[in-house]
Every structure is written in structure tokens, then in C-alpha cells.
Design a protein around this nucleic acid. Structure first.
Lengths: 345, 345
DNA sequence: TTTAGCAGTCTCTTGGCGAGAGTGCTAAAA
DNA sequence: TTTTAGCACTCTCGCCAAGAGACTGCTAAA
């Protein structure tokens, strides 16, 4: 029953596109004029009236132009928007930036955030790699200063976790190396579950202390996402007219700053769904109230079998979905490619 | 000639305090009334007129109340504001939070940002530790996946730098350990300058590749500040009335987001001055145009001889300087204490 | 030196009015 | 049956004027 005629689809699509650009309600006159349509404003008005009745459009007040509703945006993103690619020369430019940069995952992440923000003109979010099942691969203990020791744990996903700890007594580097070797010998390839069950008896209290820490760390890695989330380009959002009311701006920035909300959001959408596509969340989709006025475009990156992360952007409802989707898709593909490349074959 | 009478100082101080709270121009009537002063509004008016002539106060328009100027704030911060401590129970609470948390510098940094933001009600900035003179202490090479190797460099300041690199050929962990040991043997305790001069000849190309990278990394560490800057609480600033004009808000956020500006600002003020006090920069102090409408409170932390970082907050001119200064001072002292403690003695 | 009294100045809010933009409806044209 | 022209109607927005309110600066008395 909600089937739209071809012309209705056209009208909806054009209104979305025009509104995204101008941020002003689109009138029937402007529509035919600007897009040189071969029907009259009156016809456009009729179609717009129908689209409004079906819930795709809305009127800010009795006699203003039309504005897309969330339903309108969703329809546009789902059925009307072509899946454009980023222009080739832009793709080349971005690739170039990544290959120029230091070959280092953390560095790529921060670059991703910056590139996403710049090209999508929204606020960018990039989370670090995160493994669901962590298998221990290697442990290193490095003396830094005094009784302070750097513990580096490598998981077989390639994920690395480091932490500084302070020991009870002062040990030399070679003693530390010996300790690490002992743990490495039996723990390699095991998951947290397996490690937990090992009856680890020794007369050396330091060894036990370290082993406990390794165990805790790996367990934590499975539950909590660690590492900083990379963010960039919130300035872009603030220059959009929808954030001229400071209250709206504050509310949106809150989402952007609050790690808890973000973690929940990312894990519930991207990680829980199969398929590696791009997810578009418009106005919170009636699930997240705080996102009433914002849209998100998210995609996961990484090697599905090993570690995953999320890249995405955040913008007003009135954002350029086509540009957003193509940018996010490109960056997520590029990151996956870079990572699997750097993992070797 | 700019000597103020005691009563003038009192009036100025009260106006600053009241304005900070209400964000509205303070009238003579309100002043006497609210603070139960033992002189009349007329007297207050006379004093205010003098303070205005000397440049400490300003009138938004001919017959409104008075507002402090930058000069007024500076005088207040320099001579009128007592150097309060954070209330003892708050100090305890914060200490508790830090001791509860994982004992890890990165973790403390992010906690500092969050605590600063929360207690100062401004936007917090925390930079990681940074050494001026880097001496090599220890190198570790850990195989992660395939030809991908994690290189961890420890400097004798305790600073740690890690980077992933991809080797030409596939090496086992024990081969990597052997390589690391060779480099460690002769490089320990040397600065970048010394390392550079070593004639390093070997038939092993991988060894040379790694040595080059170590060298480059240490050199970079001396010039560019590395590591993410921790930020928190920009939301606090957005709720201040001075940022109701979105243009102002955007401009300020730009400072907060732009690493280049921030780096310049921090290095030029904090690192270049002797003494470990708290620095208050009001309205850019005629040096930074972009900071026209914002104030910064900064302090360095760390062990002066080894590595330094900066903690600070950013707020509108009309910020609570006393609360800001006491919070920043407390956090910077706490961080210094924690770090030197964890370094052992 | 301080204070009461008062005239003067400027902002801010309110309401009214006209211009302009865009719609929905009706009736004619295709 | 579909499309279009014409037109009355509605609603916003900008502008202006008037009135209330808030403070001040000044003058003269305490």
C-alpha cells in the first residue's frame, strides 16, 4: 500500500537532495524550476501532498515548503540513492596519504578519522581493533625505570596490549626475560578460559603476580573495548545550521564525547549484524532517544576472523548520505586491506 | 598610578565573582544588595566609574551594569583571588579514583582529563609525557602475525614508544630476540646524536633496517610530541551562555580540536617558563588572536629532570578562575606524585 | 566623603501591519 | 482521467513604534 509511483520517487529524491544542500524547506515552484521538471508546480504539489500523507514529507508550518521526514530519508537511503563510489582521483589521493604515513595501525586509525571528517564533512569516529576471542601469543617484560616494568601482551589476532606495572622487588632485565620465557612456554595459543584453569604453582611470588596480571588483562580484553576512540571533525557539525540552537549542539556533542553511549551504539549495531556492509542509522531509528536529531553511518573494518573495529561518521539528519556512505565504505575497505596486508599472508 | 584602594579592590573582586556566576552585567544596586555591603549604591557607582576609567570594567551599553575586562580578570587572578585548595574531601575522592584505577600512565592521563573536566566545569586537555633528551634504554622485537613485528622502544625517561613494522622476510621470535639483543648491547644509554654517528656495518639487511627505524623513531621523539592528546568535557563549555552564538562555539571548538594550535600553545607557555606554577592565559593575552574569548589554565606535571606533560583546562573568559586553578594545581601535583612514585626511587 | 533624589539613556518586549512566499482547492484544459 | 492555471487563504518574517524597566551619572544635601 505504500507503493510509490516513479514520479513520487523522483519528487522525494529531489527534495532530499535539494534540502540537504540548502537546509531550507523546498517549495513546489523551486523544485520544478531548479530541476527543470517536465510537469507543473501544481502537479508537484499534488505529489507532495500524497507523500506527506504517507509520512515521507513534512511541513514546518501550514504554508511552507516540504522537508523530508525520517521515513523519507530512510526510503531515500534504501531505494533511491545510488551507491556511488568516491571519485577515482579522490580515492588515489587518500590511498597516497595512507601509504605516505607511518605503517602503524594506531597511526592509520587517527588518519582515518581525519580523512573521514574532511571528506564527509561530518564528525568522525574510529574505534581501535577489538578481538572477541583472545588467544595469548607472546609476552614481553621490559624494565623501564626502577621497579617499573612494561608488560606487552601480543594476541594472535595481532592485537597488542601494553601496561606498566610496579613489582614488589627490583629485577634486572635478564631476570625479567627469563620470567617471560617461562610464561610464554606454556601459555602460548591458549584462551582466557584455558589459562584460568591452569594450576600454576611456584615458589616465586613475582612470577605469580605477573601471571595473574596477564590473565586479568586477557579477560578484560574480551569484555571491554580498550584503547582510545579516535574522533575528529566535530567542528564540521557545529557549522551546520541545525546546531544554531546551542542546546541541540550540546546534546549531540554529548553523544560524541560519551564513550559509554558510543560503545553501546557501535557494538549493538555493527558487531551484532552479519554482512560487512555499511549501516545507516537515521535519527536513532526509534531506539536511541538521544539520537533524535542525528544520523550515523557506520561500517566495520578488519579481518572478520580476527579483530574488528568500527569507522563511521555522525551528522545531522540532513546530511549527505551518498557522500557519507561512499566515504565510510571506502575507508573501511581501505583499512581492512591495509591491515590484512600488514598481517602478511 | 593604577593603585587601587581597598574598597575598589573589593568592588572589583565581587563583580568578578558575581559575574562569573550569573553571566549578567552587575549593577551597583545588585552588588550592595547581594553582598550586604556597608555603603550605598551611589558609592558603588562612583567606584565602578573609576574602575571603568582605569580599564578594569566595561559597560556593554550606556546604562547597563558592569562587566570585567581582560585587565580586570588579570588583576583579579593576580592579586585578589586567594589560592584556595580543593576541599579536602574532594581531594580524597579524587585520590581514591586514581588509586582504584589501573596503575598505568595512559590510564591516569585519561582519568586526569575526565576529573579536570568534571571539577572545573571546563574543557580539559592533557598531553602525554614528553622527553626533551631521549636516551635509548631498551629495545624489544615481538612477532605478531606473519612478517609483522612489533617494535617496542623504552627510553630511560620511562617513556615507551611502540610501532608495528613489516619485515622483508619472515623471522621467528628467537631470531628477533637475538637481533634485539645485539642492538641493545651497544646502543644502551646513547642519545640520537650518538647513535647517528655509529658506523654500523653488517651483512644482515634486516638488522640494518631495524636499526635505521630505531634511530628515526628516537629522533622523531625529540622533535614532535607523540601520542594522543586527551580531551574531555567540551560539553561543559557549550552550555555556557557565551557560546549561544554558534560561530563562537565553532571557533573555540576548533582550538580544542586542532592539535597544531594546541601544541604550539602548550609548548610556548608551559615548557618555556621556569617554575612549576600554574599558568593562567586570559583571552590569549594579545598574542593568540583565536583565543580572544577563551581563557586557559595550564600546569606541567612530571619529573622535571626526565619527562614533562601538560594538564589544563579551557573555558570562557567568564570562568571560575579560583576553582580552575585549584583543580589544575591539584591534578598536576597528583600526577607528578604518582609518576615519581611509580618510577621507584 | 557619602548618599538621596532624579532626569536621562539605552535595551527589551510587545503588538500591529504589510510584504512575500507557498499552499490547497476548484474548475478548465488536455 | 490526468494535468494545469488561477486564485483565495494562511502563515512567517521583518519592521516600526510605543511603553516598561533597568541603571547610570550628576547634582545637591547630609
Amino acid at each position: 500500500m505504500d507503493e510509490l509511483t516513479e514520479r513520487q520517487k523522483l519528487v522525494l529524491a529531489l527534495i532530499v537532495r535539494d534540502y540537504v544542500e540548502t537546509a531550507e524547506p523546498i517549495s513546489s515552484g523551486r523544485l520544478v524550476d531548479h530541476f527543470r521538471l517536465d510537469f507543473s508546480p501544481a502537479t508537484a504539489r499534488n505529489e507532495m501532498a500524497i507523500l506527506e500523507k504517507s509520512g515521507y514529507l513534512d511541513q514546518p508550518y501550514t504554508s511552507a515548503g516540504r522537508v523530508p521526514t525520517k521515513k523519507g530519508y530512510r526510503y531515500y537511503v534504501g531505494k533511491l540513492m545510488g551507491d556511488d563510489q568516491l571519485p577515482l582521483h579522490v580515492q588515489e589521493m587518500i590511498r597516497h596519504q595512507f601509504y605516505q604515513a607511518r605503517h602503524d595501525v594506531d597511526n592509520w586509525l587517527s588518519l582515518s578519522a581525519s580523512v573521514l571528517a574532511q571528506h564527509s564533512r561530518g564528525a568522525a569516529i574510529v574505534t581501535p581493533l577489538h578481538t572477541e576471542k583472545a588467544r595469548f601469543k607472546h609476552l614481553a617484560l621490559l624494565s623501564t625505570r626502577g621497579r617499573q616494568v612494561l608488560m606487552v601482551i601480543v594476541l594472535n589476532s595481532g592485537e597488542v596490549h601494553q601496561q606498566t606495572l610496579v613489582l614488589e622487588e627490583n629485577l634486572t632485565q635478564s631476570q625479567l626475560t627469563a620470567l617471560a620465557t617461562r610464561i610464554n612456554e606454556f601459555a602460548v595459543g591458549l584462551e582466557a578460559r584455558d589459562l584460568q584453569e591452569i594450576e600454576f604453582e611456584t615458589r616465586n611470588p613475582v612470577l605469580e603476580q605477573i601471571f595473574q596480571l596477564v590473565l586479568e588483562t586477557i579477560q578484560n580484553l574480551e569484555v571491554v573495548a580498550t584503547g582510545e576512540i579516535f574522533r575528529d571533525g566535530f567542528t564540521n557539525m557545529l557549522s551546520e545550521p541545525e546546531f544554531s540552537e546551542p542546546e541541540k549542539a550540546r546534546q549531540t556533542l554529548e553523544i560524541f564525547e560519551d564513550r559509554v553511549i558510543l560503545d553501546d551504539l557501535l557494538s549493538r549495531t555493527v558487531f551484532n549484524s552479519e554482512g560487512s556492509g555499511v549501516h545507516v542509522i537515521i535519527g536513532g531509528e526509534d531506539t536511541w532517544e538521544q539520537l533524535e536529531d542525528t544520523s550515523l553511518i557506520l561500517a566495520s573494518y578488519g579481518d572478520r576472523d580476527h579483530a574488528l573495529g568500527v569507522v563511521g561518521i555522525l551528522g545531522p539528519l540532513r546530511m549527505s548520505y551518498s557522500r557519507g556512505v561512499s566515504t565510510v565504505r571506502f575507508i573501511s575497505d581501505l583499512m581492512s586491506e591495509l591491515i590484512s596486508e600488514s598481517m602478511g599472508s
